[in-house]
Simulated assay, not measured.
Amino acid sequence: MPKRLRVLAGDCTVTFSGSNDRQRTQRGRVVVLIKPDDTTLVHDADGYQPVEWLTRPDSVTVEGDGDAFTVTARDGESTLRVVAEEATAARALPVTEAGTPVGTCPGCAGPLVRSGGDVVCGNCEERWGLPAGATVTDGTCENCGLPRIRVERGEVFRLCLDPGCESLADAVTERFDRVWDCPDCGADLRVRTAPGRVYLGCGEYPDCETTFSVPSGTVVDDCPCGLPVFETPTGRRCLDGTCDRWETATDGGRPRL
Rank of each mutant, 00 (worst) to 15 (best):
M1Y: 08
P2E: 10
K3T: 07
R6S: 13
V7M: 13
V7I: 15
A9N: 05
A9I: 01
A9K: 12
G10F: 06
V14K: 06
T15Y: 01
F16N: 01
F16T: 14
S17W: 01
S19I: 04
N20D: 15
Q23A: 03
R24F: 00
G28E: 12
R29E: 15
V30M: 10
V32T: 14
P36G: 05
P36C: 06
D37W: 02
T40D: 08
D44Q: 05
D46W: 01
Q49R: 15
Q49P: 00
W53R: 14
W53Q: 15
L54G: 04
L54A: 06
T55W: 09
S59C: 03
E63V: 03
G64C: 10
G66V: 10
F69S: 11
F69R: 10
T70C: 06
V71A: 11
V71N: 09
T72Y: 01
A73Y: 07
A73L: 03
D75P: 00
E77W: 04
R81L: 12
V82E: 14
V82D: 13
A84I: 06
A84P: 06
A84H: 13
A84F: 09
E86N: 11
A87P: 02
A87K: 15
R91M: 06
P94I: 05
V95Y: 05
T96N: 13
E97I: 05
P106W: 07
G107M: 04
C108D: 15
L112S: 10
R114E: 13
G117Q: 13
W128Q: 06
G133W: 07
G133K: 10
T135G: 12
T137E: 11
D138N: 11
P147H: 08
R148V: 04
I149T: 08
R153T: 05
R153Y: 03
F157V: 03
C160D: 11
C160F: 01
G164Y: 03
E166Y: 02
S167T: 02
S167I: 00
L168C: 06
A169C: 00
A171W: 05
R175V: 09
R178N: 10
D181I: 00
C182I: 05
D184F: 02
C185M: 06
G186N: 04
R190F: 00
R190A: 11
R192N: 11
R192L: 13
R197A: 14
V198P: 03
V198A: 04
Y199T: 02
Y199M: 09
Y199L: 14
Y199R: 06
L200F: 14
G203Q: 13
Y205T: 08
D207P: 00
T210K: 05
T211L: 03
T211N: 12
S213M: 00
S213Q: 07
V214D: 04
T218N: 11
V219Y: 02
V220H: 10
D221G: 01
D222C: 00
G226A: 10
G226L: 05
L227P: 01
L227Y: 04
T234K: 11
R237A: 07
L239D: 10
D240H: 02
A249W: 10
T250D: 09
D251P: 00
G252N: 12
R254W: 12
R254V: 13
R254A: 07
R256H: 01
R256F: 00
L257R: 13
L257K: 12
